[in-house]
Simulated scan of single mutants.
Amino acid sequence: MVLENVVVQFFQNYHMNRILVPLNQGKEVEIVSDQLKKELVNERNIHINSQPITSFQYYAGGMGVLFLLMTVVFLVGSMIEEKEEEVYKRLLVSKLSNTSYIIGKLLGIILMSMIQLAVIILFTSFVFKVNWGEPFTVVMIGCSFILNAAGFGVLIGSFINREKTFNSVGILGTQVLAALGGSMVPLYLFPQWVMNISYFLPNSLALQMFLKSMAGADFSEIQSGLLLSCGMGMAFFIIALLRMSFERKHRYA
């Protein structure tokens, strides 16, 4: 990064000198003024209440999202354990519908994840003085991410029948998602194609919304992200429901 800044500064100074040198050589001022009109720096508007993100804020959000992913993996593991210990088969012969089963698992994951999110936010707020932003906005971001992650976890759990297999895949997948989602290092350090992929990861989407909230964004500025996150969660939930209905019809009918 230091080398990059040195090189960029050198080329900026070179370009500026290349424009200003004709003034000392008696050339027309109009030509120089036209060159000076070219933008040397890209500008963008920022929110009037925007604040710089501190390292504590960034990694509080990054580690909070990572821990929530791990919680979802642990809770979905209990769902896989039911399949392995024949509890799931007993539930299938009862009057319990697939929709009730999936909703029950989803609500349990959401409830436990909400408790953990509350602990993370309160602890970092009081101990490390981390400002997460407006409470309502933070709660909505947390709910949308938990719905997204829980739906994704239940979907994966509907395809796997071995707890050990799921735990191995879940732990590895959590680390990969955390790395690609910016929980370990900022996203701008990655190549552009990795950044493009990360925008559609549940944890990366939640982290970016948390960072916007910490920077002073209001609810209206993150509405699109909330809708996308909730939509992804509902899509995962519907696919998991269809998958379990298909399995029940062809295997346990």
Results as ranks from 00 to 15, higher is better:
residue 4 E to W: 04
residue 6 V to R: 15
residue 7 V to A: 11
residue 7 V to T: 14
residue 10 F to Y: 10
residue 11 F to K: 04
residue 14 Y to H: 12
residue 15 H to W: 03
residue 16 M to R: 15
residue 16 M to E: 13
residue 19 I to L: 13
residue 19 I to S: 08
residue 20 L to K: 07
residue 23 L to I: 14
residue 23 L to N: 04
residue 25 Q to P: 03
residue 29 V to E: 09
residue 31 I to L: 11
residue 38 K to H: 15
residue 45 N to G: 11
residue 47 H to V: 13
residue 50 S to L: 07
residue 51 Q to D: 12
residue 55 S to Q: 13
residue 56 F to V: 14
residue 59 Y to G: 09
residue 60 A to K: 06
residue 60 A to S: 14
residue 66 L to M: 11
residue 66 L to S: 11
residue 67 F to T: 13
residue 67 F to C: 06
residue 69 L to V: 09
residue 70 M to E: 07
residue 73 V to N: 08
residue 74 F to S: 06
residue 74 F to C: 00
residue 76 V to D: 05
residue 78 S to H: 11
residue 80 I to E: 02
residue 84 E to D: 10
residue 84 E to A: 11
residue 86 E to W: 02
residue 88 Y to E: 04
residue 90 R to N: 00
residue 91 L to K: 05
residue 92 L to I: 11
residue 94 S to Q: 08
residue 94 S to F: 04
residue 96 L to N: 03
residue 96 L to F: 04
residue 98 N to K: 06
residue 100 S to Y: 01
residue 101 Y to Q: 00
residue 101 Y to R: 00
residue 109 I to K: 02
residue 109 I to N: 04
residue 110 I to P: 07
residue 110 I to N: 09
residue 111 L to S: 12
residue 112 M to W: 09
residue 116 Q to K: 14
residue 116 Q to T: 15
residue 118 A to V: 15
residue 119 V to N: 06
residue 120 I to Y: 11
residue 122 L to R: 02
residue 122 L to A: 12
residue 123 F to G: 08
residue 123 F to I: 15
residue 129 K to F: 05
residue 134 E to R: 01
residue 137 T to N: 09
residue 138 V to R: 09
residue 140 M to C: 13
residue 141 I to C: 09
residue 142 G to L: 05
residue 145 F to T: 14
residue 145 F to L: 12
residue 146 I to P: 02
residue 146 I to Q: 13
residue 150 A to H: 01
residue 151 G to F: 03
residue 155 L to G: 02
residue 158 S to N: 00
residue 159 F to R: 01
residue 162 R to T: 14
residue 169 V to G: 06
residue 171 I to L: 15
residue 176 V to A: 11
residue 176 V to T: 13
residue 177 L to V: 12
residue 177 L to Q: 07
residue 178 A to K: 13
residue 180 L to A: 08
residue 180 L to P: 06
residue 182 G to N: 03
residue 188 Y to E: 14
residue 190 F to K: 04
residue 192 Q to P: 03
residue 192 Q to K: 09
residue 195 M to G: 14
residue 195 M to R: 12
residue 198 S to N: 08
residue 199 Y to W: 14
residue 203 N to K: 10
residue 209 M to T: 14
residue 212 K to M: 13
residue 217 A to M: 07
residue 222 I to L: 08
residue 222 I to W: 13
residue 222 I to N: 08
residue 225 G to T: 11
residue 230 C to A: 04
residue 236 F to G: 02
residue 237 F to G: 01
residue 237 F to Q: 00
residue 239 I to F: 00
residue 240 A to C: 05
residue 241 L to K: 00
residue 243 R to F: 01
residue 243 R to A: 02
residue 245 S to Y: 10
residue 245 S to M: 01
residue 246 F to W: 00
residue 249 K to D: 01
residue 251 R to H: 07
residue 252 Y to A: 03
residue 252 Y to N: 05
